[in-house]
Design a protein around this nucleic acid. Structure first.
Lengths: 225, 225
DNA sequence: CCCTGAAATTTTGTATACAAATTATTGCTT
DNA sequence: AAGCAATAATTTGTATACAAAATTTCAGGG
């Protein structure tokens, strides 16, 4: 594997995990020594992070890890609604119905398990990924797909800011089942409606979680000094 | 100015102008000597072109200038409809009405001039840019804006593939006036409808132009040997 | 004549040295 | 003590040398 790929993946996961905290500057030599490669591949990795939106040029201070805050969540969701609805509508027109029916079934099962309070969260998110992948494939639009990828990394970062309510998770599983079913029905407008509804609920849940965390004083997004 | 910025702008415009033809490989040393800088800034410029979608990694052959073809136009427009409609709707909800009214007036004038067959095309496109900029500003969504920028560079490249019919241009100016008016009216759904209509017409015009050019044997997208 | 394979050449990937720019620090002056 | 200036120290930007990978070319055998 190329050193620049290694550096990219390493830095990327460090940012995602929070090892590199938002707002902290990424110093080339520091990372170069830490990862055991020269500055050249580090620079290439950083430029990829910039285009991912995981790093930002800071005026005079080089590049910093892109800050996250719930203030962005509305902008992010405006874009997300647009793209996810389009993707769902396209998938409804082009997708393989049986594949989405099967996914709908699995989401229904997942919803039941989560409602019983014994769900594995990671497993559930993996299922969501499967649905996303199926939709991407069915939508068959490489430009749309490209944008979705970068949007999702932003959403993943945001998601970690507020702990998701387990009750909400079961509800979300139901909504995903609904989306899959609507796509399987090949009705583009219906698929779009289900998606729009789901995203509205998701945003509302985020707002609620944030409010409750703020209340308990748990809402802190530290940037390194 | 940094050498990498110079290299980026130079390569970018070379690709846009067609000096570097689609499909041709971008050889680092070659460009390095041509532009009088070392390979390092060239590599950085190339990585920016990659994230712009103006260059593509080619398996084993390094990177090539991204090919263009009208086959992409449908995928591109699917995304464009989604984004432009969202932007128009947001702008209707947030924008300064008088600013869009003024733009609508100018488009009406432009339409009259173009219909009379004495319009300056570059001037017209500049006006379109102004509208786009106004919408971007009013939509006030940095994530959406970012995607629009890269989408528009793709559309600009595609546009050059088929000569636009002057009659269509006057019609398009009317449609832009309509869009501006709808945004000024602060009716999000209406703004979206006007945008959707315009894009449907634009796509149709592209198809027609392509068909007529193909007929006349003018439809050639050469890749260098 | 084509296919296989090995050498040669070209091209990309990485390391490092040096230059330029920017920030931090220190000392001086008011 | 505060502000400014000059200098020192970090940090990024660029060039270049070297290493590795891959493609092409050429030669030999089937």
């Amino acid at each position: 594997m190329r050193a620049s790929d290694l550096a990219y993946q390493s830095l990327r996961s460090d940012i995602m995990e929070g090892t590199l905290s938002p707002g902290s500057v990424i110093v080339e030599v520091e990372q170069s020594e830490r990862l055991g490669v020269s500055r050249t591949p580090i620079r290439e990795a950083i430029s990829r992070l910039l285009s991912d939106g995981l790093a930002e040029p800071a005026p005079g201070r080089g590049v910093i890890v892109a800050p996250i805050s719930l203030e962005n969540v509305y902008s992010l969701f405006e874009l997300r609604v647009s793209l996810d609805c389009t993707a769902a509508a396209l998938a409804a027109g082009r997708g393989d119905a049986t594949r989405f029916m099967r996914l709908a079934e699995r989401f229904k099962q997942a919803a039941a398990i989560l409602a019983a309070g014994q769900g594995n969260i990671a497993e559930y998110y993996a299922l969501v990924d499967e649905l996303d992948t199926a939709i991407d494939a069915a939508a068959a639009n490489r430009y749309l797909y490209q944008v979705q990828l970068t949007l999702r990394t932003q959403l993943t970062r945001i998601r970690k800011l507020s702990k998701t309510n387990p009750v909400r998770l079961a509800q979300a599983a139901d909504e995903h089942a609904q989306i899959a079913r609507c796509i399987a029905s090949q009705d583009a407008q219906l698929a779009e409606a289900a998606t729009r509804l789901h995203l509205a609920n998701a945003l509302f849940a985020i707002e609620e979680a944030a409010a409750s965390q703020e209340q308990h004083g748990l809402f802190e997004v530290a940037a390194h000094p």
